[in-house]
Design a protein around this nucleic acid. Structure first.
Lengths: 151, 151
DNA sequence: GCTTGACCTCAACCAAGGTTGAGAGATTAT
DNA sequence: ATAATCTCTCAACCTTGGTTGAGGTCAAGC
């Protein structure tokens, strides 16, 4: 039987299409980022739209969002119908805002660092180099990446 | 007895001066970021220059360096004499380079996001939005912060 | 109809960057 | 001399973002 465009995907298929490991996808389900249905035998069945959802997860992680933040962002998507371009556009715009803020924060840090390099003071009180307000919300990936779980 | 400017500092004193918890300072010692001496009773004694060292740790953490990277950066400081302004200036310049790279990475990401927001595709293959090369080296603080350890 | 691979759950483990607590010793102030 | 703090070590625990493995089930091909 040929594979129709509406057929659901198994976890292995979705892993191959997204480059995410099977174990990571199960983990994402556990955290509420994807909600696959189950077939008669209890195996996960993903919609084709979930490929896009998982792509979003990867992109958002690059931008430093935590799993929880990504869950909340994805919650803005409609659950009754398949998300369309406008839906994705809206939530991508949220990422863009965040990115702007991060660039801004880093640029301000660089300015402070520049005004400090000469003096070498590094004093938390004298210099305003250290500014706890400017913590970057935890950017970058945690440990691991890659598809190793063939189960 | 009045406190002379050359008197060593106890761990509690250095914690108060830097805003870092006592337990974190012990942790930093364990990881090789500071090397306090010990008094007759086995208690840690810090030099006043260690305040600056710990300030550097905080700043470097804001910029996303790991403990290990910070240790390596600090290893460039002279251990025979107290580091001077030129010493600190040199290692701060290393931070500046890193910051430049981070800003560059984010700016490129923003460009890709902008060219993608309209289409809403978010396809890993079609879009070049997702670029694993651009992982930001793990910016931002790990869990916790603050001074709670009164021991 | 059976074998091979893909899938299931659940628990344990990893790294980073610390915190918390127990039990014991050191310092300081009175 | 003694109480009140501080400090010591060591082990256990926490969160995030997953991985690894054991033991068992499901689905597909021949």
């Amino acid at each position: 039987m040929p594979l129709a465009a509406t057929d659901p995907l198994s976890i292995g298929q979705i892993a191959r299409r997204t480059g995410v490991s099977v174990s990571a996808i199960r983990f994402y389900e556990d955290k509420g980022l994807v909600q696959p249905s189950r077939n008669a035998g209890g195996q996960r069945r993903f919609k084709r739209a979930d490929v896009r959802r998982i792509s979003f997860i990867l992109i958002a992680q690059q931008l430093g969002l935590t799993i929880r933040e990504i869950r909340d962002a994805l919650a803005a998507l409609p659950d009754s119908r398949t998300p369309n371009q406008a839906d994705w556009g809206r939530i991508s715009a949220g990422l863009r805002d965040r990115l702007d803020q991060q660039i801004d924060t880093l640029t301000r840090m660089r300015g402070r660092l520049d005004s400090c390099i000469g003096c070498g003071c590094l004093s938390l009180k004298a210099c305003q180099l250290y500014n706890p307000q400017d913590r970057l919300s935890r950017l970058g990936a945690g440990p691991h990446m890659g598809i190793k779980d063939a189960d």
